[in-house]
Design a protein around this nucleic acid. Structure first.
Length: 467
RNA sequence: GGCGCCGUACCCAAGUGGCUAAGGGAGAGGUCUGCAAAACCUUUAUGCAUCGGUUCGAAUCCGAUCGGCGCCUCCA
């Protein structure tokens, strides 16, 4: 039983795809006007964990949009003199490079807004025909008063605008301030525009998600995810557009990821607490460490991002790496240890149960570390068999498939020539140690360390590995 | 002002009615070692923001208070 917290009800509910076979999921993707920041990636990593979990149980059709037309993009493109298409193409490419680094899997369908203008125009036509939309000036707006369920998702329906809250400059054109734009008439000659029966212009932001989600996934989606800040007004508006057009529920489960904070506050450019993945990589942190940190706190809890936290994540990851290395290089007898096999079965169960429990990634990691301790004890006492090793390694493949946080071991393996050189130095060092020439042995150790090789003397002899 | 989330050890963080309050980091002591590294063992919350209440029993439910954060405006 896989449970998720559904924003619609505010409660955990058991999730099943409506057709029991294929999960239809839509996630709000990036607006490609700049490099995506680490807060955005927290959400994308959470969505990645979700998609991995869903894939382990059902078939999955996951659609993510790319917002490649909006005010900021237009402004930047005019500013830089670069045409919009190449401008957004650059940042889209950068986004997917970053995703690869963070081991974020690609959705089945990636939908750029500008390739779906036709679907959006159709949707506006349906809303106009049904009286849910109206023209004011050269733009088309959504008439919220026609949609009584408005505000149900965000529970903001009865709210009043805060005194002094900013209102849009073109408010006067609307019947009501809360109405939102579906189709914007072009104001500046340099703005991109598309022809439509109701006039040349470009789509409002909310429109693309409704149009593309329904195109690929049908009228009713199983899951729709995004950051908590999209709850209102974006997702509320999507519901209004979609349900007005189809008369059917738009989404069964709304799942929202909480924010990543920096120094206890929301990341924003004006506060200067803004990190991109590239910033952090340049500081020498690796992408896996960043992913680990993002995964280590459950998606619906705010995560305070600090460099200290990154160091702790690095240390935790090292513990996993050390264990896997030790497991891999241990000299083992054939057979299996029944007690350890029991620990493994228990750990696997705990791990699955945690992820099934609303993606409790912290709990899942806890199960891994409990097991590592148990297995380390077994290794220490030589009570771990070849069969156990195989089983454990299999489990770590599962862990990696689910969480994507298992350090790669391949890079620790050197080619024969390099390995031979290192082995030679290790032999020389042991020779020196036998002769109690510790000055020389320490010098060799340092020499190896300088080329990234760490020495460990164990009862079974000297072990070495790449840092 | 309205809506929502949160407050568990030095730091991060599970646990949301009932065994001794997971796990990671950091610190301390020990085993092993020429030293180191890794590993292992022991150790660090009679208490879960505070105060009341419900209950046989609460970190977990209810209320109040204090504190933090977010949303209400583009935003992951």
């Amino acid at each position: 039983m896989f449970k998720l917290t559904n924003t619609l009800t505010g409660e955990q509910e058991v999730f099943e795809p409506q057709d029991k076979e294929t999960v239809r999921m839509y996630t709000c993707g990036p607006t490609v006007y700049n490099f995506v920041h680490i807060g955005n990636f927290r959400t994308f990593v959470f969505q990645d964990i979700l998609r991995r979990q869903l894939s382990s149980k059902w078939k999955l059709k996951h659609v993510m949009n790319i917002t490649d037309i909006d005010d900021k993009i237009i402004a930047r493109s005019i500013e830089t003199g670069q045409d919009i298409k190449s401008y957004t193409a650059d940042y889209t490419a950068a986004f997917f490079e970053d995703c690869d680094q963070l081991r974020i899997q690609k959705p089945e369908i990636i939908a750029p807004a500008t390739e779906h203008i036709g679907e959006m125009i159709d949707l506006v036509n349906r809303l106009l025909a049904a009286g849910y939309a109206y023209r004011e000036g050269d733009s088309i707006y959504y008439r919220i008063s026609r949609f009584p369920a408005y505000g149900r998702l965000s529970r903001l329906d009865k709210r009043e605008l805060k005194v002094g809250a900013r209102v849009e400059a073109d408010e006067y054109e609307k019947e009501e301030p809360r109405d939102f734009v579906l189709w914007k008439a072009a104001k500046d000659a340099r703005e991109p525009r598309w022809p439509a029966p109701f006039g040349e212009g470009r789509p409002g932001w909310h429109l693309e998600c409704s149009a593309m989600a329904m195109k690929y996934l049908g009228d009713t989606l199983d899951l729709h995810c995004g950051g908590i800040d999209l709850l209102f007004p974006h997702h509320e508006n999507e519901i209004a557009q979609s349900e007005a057009a189809t008369g059917r529920p738009f989404v069964r489960f709304w799942i929202h990821g909480e924010h990543l904070l920096v120094d206890g506050e929301k990341m924003s450019k004006s506060k200067g607490n803004f990190y991109t993945l590239r910033d952090l990589l340049n500081k020498g942190y690796d992408a896996l460490t960043i992913r680990y940190l993002l995964v280590s706190v459950r998606y619906r809890k705010q995560l305070n991002f600090t460099l200290e936290g990154l160091k702790e994540a690095q240390a935790a990851l090292d513990r996993i790496k050390e264990f896997l290395f030790r497991l891999r290089t241990a000299k083992l007898e054939p057979g299996s240890n029944a007690i350890l096999a029991g620990c493994l079965a228990n750990a696997r169960e705990q791990f699955e149960a945690a992820l099934d429990d609303d993606l409790n990634t912290s709990g899942a990691l806890g199960a891994i570390f409990v097991f590592i301790s148990e297995a380390n004890v077994a290794l220490e006492h030589g009570r771990l068999g070849e069969a156990d090793r195989m089983e454990i390694q299999e489990w770590f493949k599962v862990i990696d498939a689910r969480l994507g946080i298992v350090p790669a071991m391949e890079h620790l393996v050197l080619d024969d020539k390099q390995a031979e050189q290192i082995e030679m130095l290790v032999r020389q060092r042991n020779e020196a140690r036998r002769n109690r020439n510790f000055a020389l042995s320490d010098q060799i150790r340092q020499q190896l360390f300088d080329r990234g090789v760490v020495i460990e003397d164990t009862r079974e002899g000297t072990r070495w590995r790449q840092k």
